[in-house]
C-alpha cells in the first residue's frame, strides 16, 4: 500500500472521488463518478431524485464501499476505510433528514459528538454560543424539537467538532424556507473559516448562492460541472425538463 499519492497537480483537492462505481446488491447506482472538493471550497452536488447524489455521499464518508474507484482524502487513498475512522479524522458528515438521535437529549447528542476528540464542554460551548435555543433545550429529547431545531443541532455538531471536510446531505429536507435560509447562512460562515464542504441539495437555487462550484448528476453520472451561474442556466432542463 502506498503511503501517499505522488503530487501530480498543484491544486490537489482535499477530497476526491475517482471513477467511483457503486451498487446496492447487484443493482448499479453509480457508473463512474469523478468529483473533486478543492480545499476551502463549497461544492454543490445537484440533480433530481435517483441521480445517485446520496450514494455518492455515502461512498465519500465511508458508509458504503465502492465496487470500483478510489476515495482520496488529502491525496491519500482511503477507499474502504470505515466511516467511524474517517469521522474521527475530521471528515464530518450530516446525513439526510436525520442528523440527530431522536431518543437522546440535546446534550447527549453532543456527548456522542465527542468521539472526534474534543471535550464535551468545548463542544457545548461552541454549540450553545451559535444556537442559544439549543441551550434552553439541552435536556429535551432531540426528537421532540422542531425540524429546524433538529437540523441546528446536527449543524452544531458539524461546527463544534472542528472538521477538515464537511459533507451535508439535503439540509433543507422538510424545512420552511426561512429556516433553510438561516441554515445556509451558517454553511457560508463555516466555509469562510476554511472548511471544505460538499453539499447535496435538491433546492438548487438555495444552495447556488453559497457554492463555489456546482455539479449536476444524472443517472449515476456527473453530467456537468461549472460555476453556479453556468449551472443555474441548465437547472430547469435537468429538473423540470422545460
Amino acid at each position: 500500500m502506498t503511503p501517499a499519492q505522488p503530487v501530480t497537480a498543484d491544486r490537489q483537492p482535499l477530497l476526491a472521488l475517482q471513477g467511483i462505481r457503486a451498487a446496492y446488491g447487484n443493482i448499479d447506482v453509480l457508473h463512474g463518478v469523478d468529483l473533486d472538493v478543492p480545499r476551502g471550497a463549497v461544492v454543490a452536488l445537484l440533480g433530481p431524485n435517483g441521480a445517485g447524489k446520496s450514494t455518492t455521499l455515502k461512498v465519500a464518508c465511508g458508509l458504503m464501499a465502492p465496487k470500483a474507484g478510489k476515495v482520496l482524502v488529502a491525496g491519500r487513498d482511503v477507499t474502504g476505510a470505515r466511516a467511524e475512522d474517517l469521522a474521527r479524522r475530521g471528515l464530518v458528515t450530516i446525513p439526510e433528514g436525520k442528523g440527530v438521535f431522536p431518543n437522546l437529549t440535546v446534550r447527549e447528542n453532543l456527548v456522542v459528538a465527542t468521539y472526534g476528540g474534543q471535550k464535551l464542554a468545548a463542544i457545548e460551548a461552541v454549540a450553545y454560543e451559535r444556537f442559544p435555543r439549543l441551550k434552553e433545550r439541552r435536556n429535551q429529547l432531540a426528537g421532540t424539537m422542531s425540524g429546524g431545531e433538529q437540523q441546528m443541532l446536527a449543524m452544531a455538531r458539524g461546527l463544534a467538532s472542528n472538521p477538515a471536510i464537511l459533507l451535508l446531505d439535503e439540509l433543507s429536507m422538510g424545512l420552511a424556507p426561512l429556516v433553510v435560509e438561516e441554515l445556509y447562512e451558517i454553511v457560508a460562515q463555516i466555509a469562510r473559516s476554511g472548511v471544505s464542504i460538499l453539499v447535496i441539495e435538491q433546492f438548487a437555487r438555495t444552495v447556488l448562492g453559497v457554492a463555489d462550484v456546482a455539479v449536476i448528476m444524472l443517472n449515476g453520472r456527473v453530467r456537468s460541472i461549472g460555476t453556479p451561474q453556468e449551472i443555474e442556466a441548465e437547472l430547469s432542463s435537468a429538473y423540470l425538463g422545460g
Binding site: 424556507p177 433553510v180 435560509e181 433546492f203 437555487r205 438555495t206 437547472l235 429538473y239 423540470l240
Partner: peptide, 15 residues
C-alpha cells in the same frame, strides 16, 4: 409547468 408555486417548490426560492 408555468405555476410559480411549483417552480419554487422544485428549485427553492432564490436567496
Amino acid at each position: 409547468q408555468q405555476n410559480e408555486t411549483v417552480q419554487a417548490a422544485y428549485l427553492g426560492s432564490a436567496s
